[in-house]
Design a protein around this nucleic acid. Structure first.
Length: 835
RNA sequence: GCGGGCGUGGUGGAAUCGGUAGACACGCCGGCUUUAGGUGCCGGUGGCGCAAGCCUUGGGGGUUCAAGUCCCUCCGCCCGCACCA
């Protein structure tokens, strides 16, 4: 063993990183060229502390894709930036007094250091942080563009208030009634806030999911979040007060079964309706309780239904019946119109409420196939079966015109009738709400609006952008934005009338920043515009987007909305309707089956791994543990194995370079040569497939390991130096996307060439095919023997080979052959039966 | 409750179109080298069995010449949504 060949990543990695940095190897120009382009993007990181193991994984994936795309002939844009606004830096400021700008800058520098240490192939010339005024100037510009189009607007609404973060939150940031970050139970407050009209795009956001290559479960989550329901709006009139109450229902076919009417406690008319009735006091108390209760508790499906009567009635438009009105907290103000028609016979919730308050239940759909045995809730009326019944069937109790018709068909007829009578119409409802973007916090993009007592909310003129975030003494939110304390900044003049006015003091949700950053990368230094339309056309959409599945709804939905809105406004080429043509979501790195967390003390820091084994080992190992879209368990021993493998590859290359400079393939190939070449081409085929068809880097790396094992296996045999050299060169070339430094170095030792400038190896059919193959012989489906068979053998010849096998004969003895199944190139199965 | 995913050796995982289950690696066992080693190299390693052989992909059933893969059913784990009318 040559002692002078020791794999030393500490020497190899910085050496090549310097070459790449000096030459700007990964920088790409925007000028038009003939080469196809590829935009490979990893979701931008939030800079806090230092990168964690999840960052290492996501960049290992992103960089592997970028390298593969480059070497298969594409001009690759692989940029980097930072989602630098946000609460953690601000909370840190509240605790320590350190300006969030400074702590963020420190974190960014640490991230930069690590990413360079990892040898990522980033075009650093396009780098930016979303907190830089030169960037958020354009965030503000986009806000104003949306404002001008009415897509950004202010309204008073019941909003989610996080009492710990002391700010409002978007619906998407409330999980199980709790603030996504703080975990605090969210309160409901009536506040005037800024919203983006994402609901205008609900249908397009839904339909265009068909056009993008995203994991099906992410698409499903978005579909569910948008929650499109088709139905009808039906008007119920309160005659005493002369007020119409429209309700949304997906089941207008059950209108004849409505026996009461329910309103949400938040409904603005509830108190007015109850006023002067005997129930007024009860209603007042019920609303008080309902509105102060925790959102999470109220939302509990299993909670018994409660409510109180309003002492009023509405008229059922289809039959003129007077239905008693109730207020109950199972009806939500946020969905539909905040009021419902209750059909207890055919809705589980209404059924539960009717049971609790002894309200009438009228079946209007027959159950033609009642499940047997169900004793309770049996309906004595014709049609039978249990109630509530939510299935389909013919209508009953619906009058001469509709009785007997199938409910689905009658549904359309009833809606048509409502439309003729002016009492309703077809309607579509969405679960999706407009995006609340105001935050009563400091560390974010200021909303570029001036409030004027006479002109109202006025846009800051474009030439005055950016509205720079002022420095403040006190970052602590006190129910209003900390910016409100910067009085000199707040006080200003109205751009329209010149009168005294005040600046908006809320900042924007940081998801606004990340909804367009991918556009800015294409034209990061443009000071005249957010981007150039033609440059965007060259790069967008992102060819491969990579990130965590935790953004399945929030970021990924908002970014899609921005792209569509900006395209509508003419700022993007019309054909760009989706930001991310393909999406890959990577799984988490676990330790002993658990999430890594400081509390559990099971954190593996990428820094320590990289320092100990080098970046190549860390990157390759993390891709080798398992399929990258799945969670994977970190093992310290596994890293060692990867380190050994890369060391072995490098050492064999170094030895080969010493021993056999400049050896071409011999004219006459020995059996071992053949074996090496065949395995090499097999590996090229395998790795290429794993990289382009799917993202199975783990099996790609395993194939290169097999290739290297083959070199070791033939070493003492008759392999020619040229064949060994070819095999090692191929191995280096194939491992390059995962371990670029050692691959580059090994390749350079062997060939003197720069690996990143070489195109991806291609396979030679001659070596993928062989003259013979291993034929598997089965009897009754059980493997009994394996023999070598000529590749061009006919089916008959394969059967003969099977019959000729002693091992097969042994199992044929005393049996009758029923048939022979032949799978050419694979196996022969002889089916027998006892004689 | 609804929707989606998953279940394979001691461990991570492989098996891409119904056709050799366990590739590759970790760990473990044995051996050989070496200036010491945590380095390198060689061999072994799903279970039962001396062997022939039998068994084996969460459990049960089915389709098929052939099932980890398809169908039915049950169990377990994970993720998302959840009073959305």
């Amino acid at each position: 063993m040559a002692q002078d060949h020791i794999y030393d990543p500490d020497e190899i990695e910085p050496r090549w990183q310097q070459v790449w940095a000096h030459e700007g190897t990964w920088e790409v120009p925007n000028d038009p060229g003939d080469d196809p382009t590829s935009y490979v993007l990893v979701m931008l990181p939030y800079p806090s502390g230092e990168p964690h193991i999840g960052h290492l994984k996501v960049y290992a994936v992103g960089d592997a894709v970028a390298h593969f795309h480059r070497r298969t002939g594409r001009r690759v844009l692989n940029p980097m930036g930072y989602d630098a606004f946000g609460l953690p830096a601000e909370n840190h400021a509240i605790k320590t007094g350190q300006h969030p700008r400074d702590s963020t800058q420190t974190a960014i520098e640490e991230f930069q250091r690590q990413f360079r240490r990892w040898g990522l192939s980033i075009d650093w010339t396009r780098e930016f942080g979303t907190h830089e005024p030169r960037v958020y100037r354009w965030t503000q510009w986009i806000f104003l563009e949306l404002f001008k189009q009415g897509l950004a607007y202010q309204k008073q609404a019941a909003v989610n208030w996080d009492p710990v973060e002391e700010t409002v939150l978007a619906n998407e940031q409330v999980v199980d009634g709790r603030g996504e970050r703080s975990g605090a139970l969210v309160e409901v407050r009536q506040l005037t806030q800024w919203f983006f009209r994402i609901t205008d795009y609900a249908d397009r956001l839904l339909e265009d999911l068909e056009t993008i290559r995203w994991p099906e479960h992410v698409k499903t989550m978005q579909r569910n979040w948008i929650g499109r329901s088709e139905g009808a709006e039906v008007v119920f009139r309160n005659e005493q007060l002369g007020i119409d109450y429209p309700v949304f229902t997906t089941r207008p076919d059950t209108l004849f079964g409505a026996t009461f009417f329910v309103m949400a406690p938040e409904h603005p008319d509830v108190l007015r309706l109850a006023a002067g009735t005997e129930h007024e006091q009860d209603v007042r108390e019920y609303i008080g309780r309902a509105l102060t209760a925790d959102k999470a508790l109220r939302g509990d499906v299993d909670k018994p239904k409660t409510g109180v009567p309003l002492g009023r009635t509405v008229t059922n438009p289809v039959n003129g019946e007077q239905l008693p009105m109730y207020v109950a907290d199972y009806v939500l103000m946020e969905y539909g119109t905040g009021a419902i028609m209750a059909v207890p016979a055919h809705d589980e919730r209404d059924f539960a409420f009717a049971g609790a308050y002894d309200l009438p239940i009228r079946r209007v759909i027959q159950d033609l196939d009642p499940s047997p045995g169900g004793g309770e809730d049996l309906d004595p009326s014709p049609g039978g079966g249990g109630l509530p019944y939510t299935g389909d069937g013919p209508l009953v109790n619906c009058g001469l015109e509709f009785d007997g018709r199938h409910n689905r068909e009658a549904l359309r007829a009833i809606v048509a009738w409502l439309e003729r009578e002016g009492k309703g119409h077809e309607s579509v409802n969405y679960r999706l709400r407009d995006w609340l973007i105001s935050r009563q916090r400091y560390w974010g993009t200021p909303i570029p609006i001036i409030h004027c007592p006479s002109c109202g909310a006025v846009a800051v003129p474009e030439q005055d952008l950016p509205v720079v975030l002022p420095d403040v003494e006190d970052y602590k939110p006190r129910g209003r934005s900390p910016l409100a304390a910067a009085e000199d900044w707040v006080r200003t003049t109205c751009p329209q009338c010149g009168g005294a006015a005040e600046r908006e003091t809320d900042t924007m949700d940081t998801f606004v920043d990340s909804s367009w950053y991918f556009l800015r990368y294409t034209d990061a230094h443009n000071d005249e515009a957010a981007w150039d339309r033609e440059i965007v056309r060259r790069w967008m959409p992102v060819d491969q987007y990579i990130g965590g599945v935790e953004h399945a709804i929030l970021h990924l939905l908002y970014a899609r909305f921005f792209t569509k809105a900006l395209a509508d406004l003419g700022h993007l080429p019309e054909e760009i309707q989706e930001p991310f043509a393909a999406l890959f979501t990577q799984g988490m790195i676990l330790r002993d089956g658990e999430k890594m967390s400081k509390n559990k003390g099971n954190v593996v820091s990428p820094t320590s791994i990289v320092e100990r084994y080098g970046a190549d080992t860390a990157r390759a190992y993390i891709l080798f543990i398992g399929p990258p879209d799945q969670d994977a368990d970190w093992s310290d021993g596994g890293v060692e194995g990867m380190h050994r493998f890369l060391g072995r590859l490098w050492r064999l290359a170094a030895e080969a370079a010493d021993d056999l400079p400049d050896h071409p393939l011999p004219d006459e190939l020995s059996a071992d040569d053949q074996r090496l070449l065949r395995k090499s081409h097999w590996a090229i085929d395998k790795v290429t497939n794993d990289m382009s068809e799917r993202f199975n880097f783990n099996t790609a790396i395993a194939a290169v390991m097999e290739l290297l094992n083959e070199v070791t296996a033939v070493k003492r045999g008759a392999a020619s130096p040229g064949a060994v050299r070819f095999t090692l060169t191929t191995a280096a070339s194939l491992i390059y996307p995962f371990a670029p430094h050692v691959a580059t170095d090994a390749y350079h030792l062997l060939t003197g060439e720069r690996l990143w400038e070489q195109s991806w190896p291609s396979t030679d059919q001659e070596y993928l095919e062989s003259d013979t193959f291993e034929l598997v012989l089965q009897v009754n489906g059980k493997v009994r023997d394996r023999v070598q068979a000529p590749s061009d053998a006919s089916r008959v010849e394969l059967v003969e080979l099977a019959r000729a096998s002693d091992r097969v004969q042994q199992f044929l003895d005393g049996n009758t052959v029923v048939k022979e199944v032949v799978v050419p190139g694979k196996l022969v199965n002889v089916v027998v039966r006892p004689a």
